[in-house]
Amino acid sequence: MRDLRTRPQGGSTSSYLKRYWTLYLMLALPLAFIIVFRYFPMAYIISAFKVNNILQPPWHLPWARNNGFEWFIKAFNNRDFLYALRNTLTLNLLDLLVGFPAPILLALILNELTFKRFKRITQTVVYLPHFLSWIIISGLALRLLAFHDGLLNILLRQLGLQAIPFLNQPSYWVASYVGLGIWKEAGWNTIIYLAAITAINPELYEAAAADGASRLRRMWHVTLPGLRPTIIVLLIMSLGRILGSEFDRPYALSNRLVTSVSNVISIFVYEYGIRGMQFSLSNAVGLFQSVIGLFFLLGANTLARRYGERGLW
């Protein structure tokens, strides 16, 4: 295939444009979308520094107190925000630690399956939970994991074992939260790894096998290195979301006994900002989240490049 990034030898700009204008035309629409719906709204970031009023355009409003930083100060003086910050970091880090490797492992295992039909069925089965919303999953979790009436605990008790407070105690709840996250998304996230695995040159496997490498050896020395660029890119993107927080997952799974670990930033924004109508506050918190996320993303990208990976760009 021709490399479209290099201009044809000896051609002028106009003949280049003449040749490729359709491609630029196709790009125009998504570009316009991003500019209109992603960049224009950024002007409203300024409302994080203005008095709380969503009836007037923020540029007409006076600055908030403390040189415009009233809402940031308010957030950081709020214990609930600090807990939410801590909980967001904890849950996201655990997700990263446990949840990130899960699809890689699963992809490796799936890749080793030799019966094509069985592999395909297994893949479909592990993808399915991705399509359930967290609301449905939280309903399932309650029926299965409730301390007294949950199916799993009823079984445990009938087997003469102790019931487990999956949802009632903060530490168990965190484990359930992370576990359910893996159950829902690990299968779906294998897609990108499986795609990357198909791109690995089969000759490498053959050569390794000829050299006497066992199955595990081949996974370790061929498949995993082949996956490395994909893993790095996905890792950097996950780090960019380290302070981001989903809303529906913690909100749906939470209950009154575990709010000390389940109240994350998105729930704080919902309670204080949206339901409490302090829109500037929620905007300030959102901005803070984005800036920290950006730092993590840039930092991870720099590190990756320093260690010889391509990174995101």
């Binding site: 309650l142 209950n255 009154r256």
Partner: peptide
């Protein structure tokens, strides 16, 4: 009712 804390608003259990 021992399990009351884990059921959210609007649940019909």
């Amino acid at each position: 009712w021992q399990d009351f804390p884990v059921y959210p608003a609007g649940d019909n259990t």
